[in-house]
Structures are given as structure tokens and as C-alpha cells.
């Protein structure tokens, strides 16, 4: 196991957290931690320009059927049914993604607009190389195209964001729509804590429910 593969003290600009107290890995730190600094700066700047223009106009709409088919197909490449552990479809990755993109912070980051834009980039490359959209390719062609696609850092960031949501679908509590019956936990031999959240006590209830935390 490589040292680089482990969470390190978070330097998000750049304080250190240690387990002795609240060492929460917030989602944002997490995005920062998980990409190299240069790539990340690019992604954030890019996403922010989207946030301004698109967060209200795009994020409330559903994906089109073409967008949905493309995303499901890309997710299966990123997290395939390879005989070892659940696939993207087994962990309900698409359904989870749809729900996660309704999170106000994710909306403010312009994630949905960025994801839709990426589908176009991918189709453009597919048309260049195969004269047709990504979803029409066979599995081998899809894999090879994504390999080429990932060589551009902007495109790789797009794939990275999809992986980010995929891994949330794999390991967050099933109450959030992914990881059905703890399929991801079982595969990774992870023992969840208890009590587990129920559908009246998700993080969104704590953050956005008017009656949350008023008194005992």
C-alpha cells in the first residue's frame, strides 16, 4: 500500500485536522483533497463559471433520455460489472446521482450543468472517432474512448466528479438511495455504525428542516 493512497492531514488552505477531536471530512475539503492542486483549481474555476449561469436554469430540470442513457453507460464503464463486487447499476448510481444533484451546495457548485456539458464533449469525441454518439458504441469502444477522453484534464475532471458521486452511492447509508441493502459495505467488509439514519433524519433534515434543533 502506498502512502499516497491514504487520507492525510487535510491541507485545504490548509489546516490540519486530527482525530483527537472533530476530524470531519467535509465534502468540500474532500473535493480539494482528492484532486491535485492544479487540476482542482481548474475544476473549481470551471465549475464556478457554470454555477453562475446554470445553477438555476439547468439543475431543476431532469436529464433528457439521451443524457440519462449516456450517464448510465459511462457509470458502468467507471464502475463495471466485472465479477468482483457490485456494478454502478447494482449500487443505483444513476438514481443516487439524480438525487445528489438536488443538494443546494451541489447545485451552487454547478455540478449538473458541468455534467451535461461533459456529455456533449464525450459525444463530440465519439462522433469524431466513430461518427456516432457514445451510447451506440460497443463496450470495448466505450472503454477505449473514455481512455482517450481522460487525457484532457477538463474531461478527466468530469469523469472524476462522476466517480465522486459513484463512490457516494457505493458507501453512504442506503437511506440516500445508493448502496441498496448495504451491498457496497458487504463487498468492502465495512461495518456501519449505529444507530443508522432513517428517512426522517437525513443530513438535509438537519440542514433545511425549520424545526430541527429547536430545543429538547
Amino acid at each position: 500500500m502506498q502512502q499516497s493512497s491514504h487520507p492525510k492531514p487535510i491541507r485545504s488552505g490548509s489546516q490540519t485536522h486530527i482525530a483527537a477531536f472533530n476530524s470531519s471530512l467535509s465534502r468540500r475539503d474532500f473535493l480539494k483533497q482528492s484532486a491535485t492542486a492544479t487540476l482542482l483549481a481548474g475544476l473549481l474555476i470551471y465549475k464556478h463559471s457554470f454555477a453562475k449561469e446554470l445553477s438555476t436554469s439547468v439543475s431543476t430540470k431532469d436529464f433528457t433520455s439521451h443524457q440519462k442513457a449516456t450517464l448510465e453507460s459511462v457509470q458502468l464503464q467507471l464502475f463495471p460489472d466485472d465479477g468482483d463486487g457490485p456494478s454502478a447499476s447494482n449500487i443505483h448510481a444513476y438514481r443516487y446521482l439524480q438525487w445528489a444533484l438536488t443538494d443546494p451546495e451541489n447545485m451552487a457548485d454547478g455540478d449538473k450543468g458541468f455534467i451535461i456539458e461533459g456529455i456533449q464533449w464525450l459525444d463530440n469525441l465519439s462522433k469524431q472517432q466513430h461518427s456516432s454518439n457514445f451510447i451506440t458504441l460497443n463496450p470495448k469502444q466505450k472503454h477505449q474512448l473514455l481512455e482517450v477522453f481522460s487525457h484532457t484534464s477538463k474531461h478527466e475532471n468530469w469523469m472524476s466528479l462522476l466517480v465522486y458521486y459513484l463512490l457516494e452511492a457505493l458507501l453512504l447509508d442506503p437511506v440516500y438511495g445508493g448502496n441498496p441493502n448495504g451491498i457496497g459495505w458487504k463487498w468492502l467488509e465495512h461495518q456501519p455504525g449505529f444507530p443508522r439514519p432513517d428517512n426522517k433524519h437525513t443530513y438535509r433534515h438537519f440542514l433545511y428542516d425549520q424545526d430541527s434543533g429547536k430545543s429538547v
Binding site: 487520507p7 464503464q77 466485472d82 465522486y164 457505493l170
Partner: peptide, 25 residues
């Protein structure tokens, strides 16, 4: 403190390069 989702996400890059597919799994 356990944070499996964060732990998994911290594994998605190796030497700065994004891993995906069976390699990532």
C-alpha cells in the same frame, strides 16, 4: 473516525492520475 466514502474517494487518484473501472474497484 470511520469515513468510508471519503476513504474510498481518496483512493481514486494514483500519482495524480484518475483511476476508474476495474482498476479503481
Amino acid at each position: 473516525p470511520p469515513s468510508p466514502t471519503s476513504d474510498a474517494n481518496s483512493l481514486k487518484r494514483e500519482d495524480g492520475k484518475l483511476l476508474w473501472g476495474s482498476t479503481l474497484k
